[in-house]
Amino acid sequence: MKRRTMLSGLATLVASGGLISGTGAFSSMDAQRRISVSTAGDNQSLLALEQVGDGTGPAFGRSVEGGTPERVAFSFPGTGEGSNLGLGTNSVYEFDRDSGESDDPDPTEGLLRITNQGTQTIEIYSEHQTSSELEIELYDVTDAEKIALRDKPPELNTGDSIKVGFRIQTFDAEIQGFDETLTIVADAV
């Protein structure tokens, strides 16, 4: 699919390239051009990442956002859920929503909303590289089968969003706290 646009792009380059070589060959050129780049908080970025759901106290959820620029971060259990608690070993935990949603008759699903604020359709998935035994993956909370995004990356058109939950498998991880990095990847399709 992408290949076709690429080919037509090349074709136009070649076509106009003929003109260029006819009028003035050059072997090298340096041109400084300015590229304006600005970073934005996760909420305002091209790939918008927003925490959703309430924690058990102000900013004490499983998903939070803060800092400058603003960034989302995650904690399991949520910091308001009891500091001595944890995920059992050799277990699979799925977190569909934040801890403070339990008493809500109409709870907010998902821990993270990912929105495509760019101009191209993207596919979205997560990667988790770690030296620990843990395995962390995201899934669409509206998917009854909760298939991991990385196994079946959903496509998001411009303006579309998806709400995801976290699946954490502990396997034989030691009894301790882990600071893991999850990479959220958006690829144009």
Binding site: A73, L87, Q120, I184
Partner: peptide, 24 residues
């Protein structure tokens, strides 16, 4: 605002506990 790929690293803190201290 076209982009071809974005990779964003975000932190996830996970606490693993013994069965007696687990959520279940």
């Amino acid at each position: 605002g076209a982009f071809s790929t974005v990779e964003a690293d975000r932190t996830v803190s996970v606490n693993v506990a013994s069965d007696s201290q687990a959520l279940l």
